[in-house]
Design a protein around this nucleic acid. Structure first.
Lengths: 176, 176
DNA sequence: CTTAACTTCATAAATTGTTATCAGGTTAGT
DNA sequence: ACTAACCTGATAACAATTTATGAAGTTAAG
């Protein structure tokens, strides 16, 4: 309802993380943070929760890869448990341990689909390229023929001219 | 039944990992490897499988923390198939259930990823080829026009100015 | 027109993680 | 007694990840 958005500066203040770190996390964890029309990040409450979780996991020594896996597993739970941020320090409770592979799996499947599409495009593009090359070849041939023809013309013209002095340089012209 | 044990040297040979790396993995992944009365490590087949999986995951860029998490999900690989790993390659032994991380699975996924990368390369290469062809087309066009023009010029000159042609057109031809 | 608050991209610096070496020990088998 | 194969623990060397800084650009507000 009252969807409130936070700008990166605010988030940085609230959570005590540097802005560049927030951007880094966004990349490495592949979080998708909304943007406004100007391109500025808009963090939702949910994003804040996610970030808080991430920070905790980081403190426990998980790194991005691990955190990403953990996030995948806990995200679908979509905790209704509002801020139960009590002080109790659960020392050994990693959040949910589900099928880690699902991310990989899902990613793989969409990758396969993407590849299939790309491949179609590739085949088509290749066909077109092949065509253009063939045309180029033809064109080149034609040009050559035309040019030869013109040169012949020129030669004819020249031959009809008895003046022999020019022979030397002219022959040089079309010998190469 | 015939539980065979491998010593660290053998494992090192088999899997192509240095012994110190094996020990490192044991620590960082908190694997519990049996010991004999003397304290020497005794790797079981199952340990080998685990290690193979670990290696796969490592190759995919997961680090120990992440791998540890992944292992937790796949650890209860409760296959009661004690039978020998005979040579017969049963191709369609479908795992049937359970999101267990298998080596095959990981391999499949990384194959997909590899293909995806290759595909990207192909797309890029196509783009470059397209560019080169376009350049070639342009070049050919330009080249042809210029040459044609010169020849025409030459012919014209030859036809129209039989007297003055000696130097003027020639120099024009070469100097430009 | 300047400032504030963003953006990206690149790169430096600090921190962690991994692999490799070395030293010193134990045990079993020649 | 000597060697082979293992053990531990410390540390060096290198690789990867994470954090910090800087340059250059965009947009909105004063």
């Amino acid at each position: 309802m009252g969807e409130r958005f936070y700008k990166i500066g605010e988030v940085s203040e609230l959570l005590n993380i540097e802005q560049h770190t927030l951007r880094y996390l966004e990349n490495s964890l592949k979080l998708k943070i909304l943007r406004d029309e100007r391109g500025d990040r808009q963090y939702t409450e949910s994003d804040l929760d996610t970030l808080r979780l991430v920070l905790q996991l980081k403190n426990r020594g998980l790194n991005t890869t691990a955190i990403r896996m953990a996030l995948e597993n806990s995200s679908e739970v979509d905790n209704q448990n509002e801020d139960e941020q009590s002080d109790k320090e659960e020392t050994e409770k990693l959040p949910v341990r589900g099928p880690v592979v699902t991310i990989e799996f899902v990613e793989a499947i969409s990758a396969v689909k993407r590849i299939a599409e790309q491949n179609e495009t590739l085949v088509e593009q290749n066909r077109l390229l092949e065509l253009r090359i063939r045309r180029l070849e033809d064109k080149l041939d034609r040009y050559h023929r035309e040019r030869d023809q013109k040169l012949d013309e020129l030669i004819q013209l020249f031959k009809s001219e008895p003046d022999a002095r020019n022979k030397s340089w002219l022959s040089r012209l079309w010998n190469k």
